[in-house]
């Protein structure tokens, strides 16, 4: 369980988050949605300790993120962002292998190699394993980074817009893999999504943010209503039900 309690954040004098509290249960796929600038990425960064906590408390499985040693937390929680640094010359296999760093500190064991091979296979990267990142398309690189997070083997995966750069086929495949992680392996996935239809189709729970506050939280049926979406995005959109799925044509 990720427990967020009374968290506020101000960056360079601009308030980003206002007294945010939320409980994200274990073993669910949780989608963070909301307009640009709502504070979704900031909240995710705080949970992943990329930004130091200014006020309030965040715990992951009871571990306070601001006081737990980084190495311990790296076996429980990981975040995927597309910030590559000097990684461009790495091969896909090397990048995915970094996911094992919290376990083996860089000296790969046979077990690590098994995990790496499994991650490559899971994300359809086996054939690309020897390619360097700068020789990949945006979508392939994206999959490599998610595969690295997967390979880290943590109970909690935080993903900041993992569908960026992915076409429909790989977008769907990505969501199905994440769904699989939750259903079969009992992992918890928190994901920032922009397409609410993906959220409607795959998430167990949706947390809606606006202007640095959480304005709604619950199963898709409860959060994705015409009124609720208008409060978030500022215009009305119809919410259709097709079979047991919600479908929201938000682009008309």
């Amino acid at each position: 369980m990720i427990a967020i309690d009374g968290v506020s954040l101000t960056l360079q004098g601009t308030p980003i988050l206002h007294d945010v509290s939320a409980t994200l249960p274990k073993g669910e796929l949780i989608a963070l949605i909301g307009p640009n600038g709502a504070g979704k990425s900031s909240l995710l960064s705080l949970v992943a300790r990329l930004i130091p906590l200014q006020s309030g408390r965040i715990t992951v499985d009871g571990l306070p993120v601001d006081r737990t040693p980084g190495r311990r937390l790296a076996r429980t929680l990981t975040i995927m962002r597309q910030d590559t640094g000097l990684a461009a010359r790495l091969t896909v296999r090397e990048l995915v292998g970094f996911g094992r760093f919290p376990h083996s500190r860089g000296r790969l064991t046979d077990e690590d190699r098994r995990h790496i091979a499994a991650a490559l296979a899971e994300f359809d990267l086996t054939e690309l394993a020897g390619r360097t990142l700068d020789a990949l398309s945006g979508g392939q690189r994206q999959r490599a980074f998610v595969a690295m997070a997967f390979c880290q083997g943590t109970d909690y995966l935080l993903l900041d817009e993992p569908l960026n750069n992915l076409d429909m086929m790989y977008g769907r495949q990505m969501m199905r893999i994440l769904r699989h992680l939750v259903d079969r392996q009992g992992r918890t996935v928190v994901i920032v999504l922009h397409d609410i239809n993906y959220a409607a189709a795959y998430a167990d729970r949706i947390v809606a943010m606006k202007d640095g506050r959480i304005i709604a939280s619950g199963p898709p049926d409860a959060v994705l209503t015409t009124d609720g979406l208008e409060a978030m995005y500022g215009y009305r959109m119809p919410v259709h039900r097709i079979g047991d799925r919600l479908f929201i044509p938000h682009h008309d």
């Binding site: 992943a48 980084g70 311990r72 076996r75 990981t78 962002r81 000097l86 760093f101």
Partner: peptide, 19 residues
């Protein structure tokens, strides 16, 4: 090995447990 991880940038390195 830690330096290899640090080359990923702060987000990647912190996420992999580097202080």
């Amino acid at each position: 090995h830690v330096l290899d991880v640090m080359a990923l940038g702060p987000a990647g390195a912190i996420s992999l447990g580097v202080d």
